[in-house]
Design a protein around this nucleic acid. Structure first.
Lengths: 342, 342
DNA sequence: ATACTTTGTGCAACCGGTTGCGCAATATAT
DNA sequence: ATATATTGCGCAACCGGTTGCACAAAGTAT
C-alpha cells in the first residue's frame, strides 16, 4: 500500500539499510547519497511506519491514559497537560475510558497492554490499587493522578485534597458559618475521603463537632449535578447555612436546586465547589471554589512518567489547591433575617 | 521482555505457527494441543502484541480522531459515541488534538499517518477541506462530523444546523420577539454559516429583514463564553429582546453577563443556545436550546467508517436537532414594561 | 611501497506475529 | 489391500523497519 524503505531503496539503487540510515542522518552515509535519498523520500511521499519501528525498537512512544470518562469537565485539561509534555518528548497519548465500569476498565487495561504502550497514567479509576497486579511482571511504569495510595511502589501526583477542602471550609467559617454541610461522592473513594478529612480538620480546629445530619453522600455513578440537587432539602432541614461540595459539578447541581426552590445564593445559603472547572466562572452567581491546577497536574504526571522511563525514581508529588473566592459565599446573616426573606 | 508465541512454542514443544493457530482456534489444530497451548498461554500471562499483528496484517484496528480540543463539552459525548461502536467492532480510537492551531493539526494528521490508523474521523477542524490532499494517494477513509463539504468524495455526518437554528428562532418569534440577535463564532466557518442561514430563514419567513446591528460575531479562538458576554451590550443597544447563540457555551457567557448587569432572564431578555451540553439543564435559569444528538452523531460517523472500511459507499447523513424548551425564553412583554423594570 | 585507519555501503538477523504450502500419519472409500 | 481424503503440524517467507558486522575502496601514516 504505502511506500516503504524498500521502494525507496529500489528506486535509488541502494540497499534498504542505507535508506534507513540516510533518513536517520547516520554519519556513515555520504552527504550526497543522504541528500539524494531524503529528497527521493519526500517526492515519493514516504511516511515511516511507527508500527514497524515499534516492533523493532520494542517501544511504541505511546502513553496510555485510563480515565472514567472524557466527558468530565475536569479531565480535559489534565489530559491536555499530559499531552503537552508528551508531545514535546516525542510521545503520543492513547486515551482509554472505563465509563465507570470495572469490566470496561479491565478491558481498557488489556487493550493498552496489547498495544504495548510504554507507560500508563491513571485517573479516577475504580481499581487503581490493582494496577500493580495487572502489571506485576512487566516493567511498564504507572503514574496515578489524584489517588495517593500510600507506600508501595505506586507513583502518583495529586492535588492536596485535604488542604484544599480545609481552605474552603475555613473560608466559610471565617464568614461566620458554623452549620456547614458536606456533599460527597463516595464513588471516588480516596479523594472524597481526603476532602472530607479537610472539612473535618477545619471544623475541629474551631472546636465544632461534625454533625452527621450535615453530611450528604451519594454513590451514584450518574450525574454529579444530580447529587448536588438532591442534597438541598436534607441539608436545609439540618439547618445548614453553607455547603462545601465535593466538586464544581455537584455545586452547580445544588445551585440549580436552590434556584428552583427559591433559595437565593449566597444570601440564604453559601456554596463552595472544588476543581475550578471552566464554567465555574460563569455560573450564577459565579462559583467560589478551590482551584486545582489541572493542566499542571497533567504536565507533572507526564514528567514523572518520563523520569520513570529513563530509569529514575521520582518522588511523589502533592500540589496545593488555591481558594478562588467568587460570589456564592457571603457572611452569615442571622437566622431570623433568613426566615423573613423567604 | 514480554512473553511471545516463541516462548510458548518452546515450552510446549511445538512450532510458533502451531501456537499462533491454536490461539486463533484454527480448525486444523487438534483439540488437545489447542487446549494445552491456550492454557499454557494463560499461565504464562501471554498478551498478544497488536504491534506485531498490525505489521503482519497491514491493519491497526485503530481509528484516529482529530479534534480541536478535548475540553469542549460538546466533544466528549461525540467521542464516546464513536468509541461505543468502535469497540463493538474491535477497534480503538486514537485521539489527536489540534488545539485550534493549524501547525498542530498538521502534526496530528502526520502522527496518525505514521501510526497507520485505518481511518480518520475529523471534527471541528481548521483545514478539514484539505484532508483529501493529505490523504490523496492513500485509501484511508475519512469521515467529517458537522462540516458538510458539498460534493466531492468527502463523507460526513452532521446535525442539520440550518434547520436547528430555524427551530430556535421560530420559537422566539412565536413568543412575540421580533428583535432577535445572533451571536456567532466565525471560527467554525461551516456550522456558523449554516446556523446563521437558519436564523435568516426563520426571520424572512415572517417577512422580517435581518438587521446587521443585531449580528454579533467573533473570531476568537478563546473561550466561547467570553464572546457571549461581550455581545450583551451591543445587542441591547440594538434593541434586542431575544438572542440566538451559536452554542450553549456562548449562551452561558451571555447569561453570566446578564446576571452581572442586572438584566433578568427571561423577563428582560430571552436566550437560546445550541448543542444541549450537559450543564445546559443546570444553568440559571435552565437553558432553552437545540439538542444535538451528540452520542448518536459519534455512533453514526463510526458506523459510516465501518461501512467505508468494508468497501461500501455510504450516503452522507444529516440528522435533525430538537428544540428543548427550558426557562431562558419567555413571551415578549411590552417595551415600556422592560424600561420600568430596569 | 606497505600497513593501518577511515569512509561508505551491503548482508543478514531480528522484532512478533500470520499464512501458503508441503508432508507424514491416520481415516475413509473402493 | 490399495487409492484417496482428511487431519495435524512444521517450514519458511513476509510485514517494515533497525543494527551489528563484514568488506571494499579510498585516505593517511610510516
Amino acid at each position: 500500500m504505502s511506500v516503504s524503505i524498500y521502494d525507496i531503496a529500489k528506486k535509488a539503487g541502494v540497499s534498504p539499510s542505507t535508506v534507513s540510515r540516510a533518513l536517520e542522518d547516520h554519519p556513515r552515509i555520504s552527504a550526497t547519497t543522504r541528500k539524494r535519498i531524503q529528497e527521493l523520500a519526500r517526492e515519493m511521499d514516504y511516511v515511516p511506519s511507527t508500527v514497524a519501528k515499534s516492533l523493532a525498537a520494542n517501544k511504541t512512544w505511546t502513553i496510555g491514559m485510563v480515565l472514567a470518562t472524557i466527558t468530565d469537565p475536569f479531565m480535559g485539561r489534565v489530559v491536555e497537560g499530559v499531552e503537552n509534555v508528551a508531545i514535546e518528548a516525542g510521545f503520543n497519548v492513547f486515551i482509554s475510558t472505563s465509563q465507570n465500569d470495572r469490566q470496561r476498565e479491565i478491558a481498557a487495561i488489556k487493550m493498552l497492554q496489547k498495544r504495548r504502550v510504554d507507560g500508563v497514567i491513571v485517573i479516577a479509576s475504580h481499581l487503581f490499587d490493582q494496577y500493580p497486579r495487572f502489571y506485576g511482571r512487566s516493567k511498564v511504569p504507572i503514574v496515578i493522578i489524584n489517588e495517593q495510595k500510600p507506600g508501595e511502589s505506586t507513583h502518583f501526583v495529586t492535588v492536596d485534597d485535604v488542604h484544599g477542602a480545609q481552605l474552603a471550609v475555613e473560608h466559610l467559617l471565617a464568614l461566620g458559618h458554623c452549620r456547614i454541610g458536606y456533599v460527597g461522592i463516595t464513588n471516588r473513594p480516596q479523594s472524597n475521603q481526603h476532602r472530607f478529612k479537610g472539612y473535618q480538620n477545619a471544623l475541629e480546629a474551631r472546636g465544632i463537632a461534625v454533625d452527621p445530619a450535615l453530611i450528604f453522600t451519594s454513590h451514584t455513578i450518574e450525574d454529579h449535578a444530580k447529587v448536588g440537587g438532591a442534597s438541598l432539602e436534607p441539608l436545609l432541614a439540618a439547618g445548614a447555612t453553607a455547603v462545601f461540595c465535593y466538586n464544581d459539578t455537584t455545586a452547580i447541581g445544588l445551585l440549580a436546586a436552590c434556584y428552583k426552590h427559591g433559595i437565593s445564593v449566597p444570601e440564604n445559603l453559601s456554596i463552595t465547589g472544588f476543581d475550578d472547572i471552566d464554567i465555574a466562572a460563569y455560573t450564577i452567581p459565579p462559583l467560589t471554589t478551590i482551584r486545582q491546577p489541572r493542566f499542571e497536574l497533567g504536565q507533572r504526571s507526564m514528567r514523572m512518567m518520563l523520569a520513570l522511563l529513563s530509569g529514575q525514581l521520582p518522588e511523589n508529588q502533592i500540589v496545593p489547591g488555591e481558594l478562588v473566592v467568587r460570589q456564592t459565599t457571603a457572611c452569615l446573616v442571622s437566622g431570623e433575617m433568613v426566615e423573613a426573606a423567604s
